[in-house]
Design a protein around this nucleic acid. Structure first.
Lengths: 100, 100
DNA sequence: TGATAATATGAACATATACTCATATACGGT
DNA sequence: ACCGTATATGAGTATATGTTCATATTATCA
């Protein structure tokens, strides 16, 4: 049928990719941490007790979707949120889940 | 370290499950359709050209998370959204992705 | 330039996910 | 009670995903 009620392929792809990014505990923890303060990879590793490689992989994932951005400072690379809309959704949903 | 900046296990589970639900194209299409109008399983199958079993499985998934609810009418079962907050997030993100 | 620290990358592996097929269940009409 | 229609369920399968390990890259400093 493929009528007007359905969503187009591209919208579907973008939206699903975006939510998929928020659908993993590790990425949620990273984003939530970054919402509090800009962090280097090493700081994320320490704060969340994760493997360096794990964090690096997930940051690349998030950066590809433009959910985070990075800047270099010496040998360290600092990450921070880039998409206000998505961060807002994440934080609101965390709050929402807390008073149930 | 496990400090105050990190999220507790339960919150993490609920939030990730919720976003995981929105991270699949099929479920997005179903939820978006239901946001327009209450539908029976058969109507969803027709509108979205999906397999009956696929739709049924996904509806169970969504119902477990209390994202949709159902009512019986004869042999048909009609589904509709149950979580306003999540539906709002979905619709807003769809809009957000459209004017980029 | 060599050594060290911080981060990124690729391959391998284990698990999770979504679909399909076949079958079961539930209801209404006859 | 039997049949047809609508929906649900379980097993099997193929693909996607997340982590780990080993190694590569990049930058700083002596």
């Amino acid at each position: 049928m493929a009528n007007n009620i359905d969503l187009d392929k591209e919208t579907l792809f973008i939206v699903s990719q975006t939510f998929k990014a928020l659908g993993d505990p590790t990425r949620i923890r990273i984003l939530h941490l970054l919402s509090k303060k800009e962090c280097s990879v090493g700081e994320i590793v320490e704060h969340l007790s994760l493997g360096q490689s794990t964090v690096s992989h997930q940051l690349r994932f998030l950066k590809n979707l433009r959910l985070v951005k990075s800047r270099r400072e010496g040998t360290s690379i600092y990450y921070s949120p880039e998409d206000d809309h998505i961060m807002d959704i994440l934080e609101k949903t965390i709050e929402h889940s807390n008073h149930d």
